[in-house]
């Protein structure tokens, strides 16, 4: 209504045209392929419209991949967010070292999953420095198997995901006005109570967002699951199944169906996390950065 009134009175605002290329690009290369894939997933090589989906949920090396992926992605995300929160909380106070420590903790972002996989094969492998050190110091004498299994992939997910979670949470924490915590302190709140009653409620939306973004990264794990895990067995994640369907069996229809299932599971988790966040939410507090 008001929009129509505004249009009637004012001439067309040409600034709005500036957003058109970006919107058109996203529609053409993100939305259209997505819808195309969705349509394609309902046109299987054989069977009815739901053939791919019933194939996925009845084939023994396909449907368990959902569980395999969640079993890797959820612990990895919990570890990353759980480690990043206390460390970032400690780093919120500006000191001389803050910038240095932040930089050091952020550097692994650049390593990329492939490099981490290659490095972990050398370092965490049975003949690597880690197991040599552990065996020499007799901390642990049995054979150490951290590569080509579940643990290798989990380690690589933590190394690649932690810096990202840390950076995100740190920026949310530093965005909270420290005056609020000081006010609580004058009322007698110790640091633990300040965290519990001031920072945590204010951080809840940021933590939920961070959890979702960290989960996206972990959930789409691909190179490290192939290189560092055992892609035929315990780390056969859903993206491997999708890739095999598309580029080894050339069944794009099945591959699209797997991609859609993957997106759907991802969406369920995001919805669950955001729903959980709403339980925590206690109303807006003004407290951005100056």
């Amino acid at each position: 209504m008001t929009q129509a009134h505004a249009l009637a009175r004012a001439p067309f605002d040409r600034t709005l045209l500036l957003v058109v290329p970006a919107a058109a690009f996203m529609l053409l290369l993100f939305i259209y392929p997505f819808l195309y894939g969705l349509g394609l997933s309902f046109e299987p090589k054989e069977g009815g419209a739901l053939g791919n989906y019933s194939h996925f949920f009845t084939t023994d090396n396909l449907w368990p991949t959902i569980w395999t992926t969640l079993r890797l992605a959820l612990p990895a995300t919990l570890i990353n967010v759980g480690l990043a929160l206390p460390i970032a909380y400690k780093m919120r106070i500006k000191t001389r070292y803050q910038r240095w420590i932040t930089t050091i903790l952020v550097v692994p972002i650049t390593l990329g999953t492939v490099l981490i996989a290659e490095g972990a094969l050398t370092y965490f492998g049975p003949k690597g420095w880690l197991s040599q050190t552990l065996q020499l110091s007799h901390i642990y004498d049995g054979p150490i198997r951290l590569t080509h299994n579940y643990w290798g992939v989990l380690i690589s997910l933590v190394i690649s995901g932690f810096p990202f979670a840390f950076l995100l949470i740190l920026s949310y924490i530093t965005g909270i006005d420290p005056v609020l915590a000081r006010a609580a302190a004058t009322l007698g709140a110790d640091p633990a109570a300040q965290f519990r009653h001031i920072y945590l409620p204010l951080l809840a939306p940021g933590l939920a967002m961070c959890f979702c973004l960290a989960f996206v990264q972990a959930f789409s794990v691909f190179p490290s699951a192939v290189l560092l895990g055992s892609p035929a067995g315990p780390t056969r994640v859903i993206s491997i199944a999708a890739y095999e369907a598309a580029f080894e069996q050339y069944d794009y229809s099945l591959a699209s169906a797997i991609a859609m299932i993957m997106g759907f599971v991802q969406l369920l988790i995001v919805a669950a996390v955001l729903g959980l966040r709403n339980l925590f939410y206690r109303g807006p507090v003004v407290g951005g950065k100056g």
Partner: peptide, 24 residues
């Protein structure tokens, strides 16, 4: 809605839209 359109690619695993995109 436009904001959502620009946020979605960062919230969806790359493989999910990468495979349909590669097909197109």
């Amino acid at each position: 809605a436009l904001m959502l359109l620009f946020l979605l690619p960062l919230m969806v695993p790359p493989i999910t839209y990468g495979i349909p995109l590669a097909t197109v």
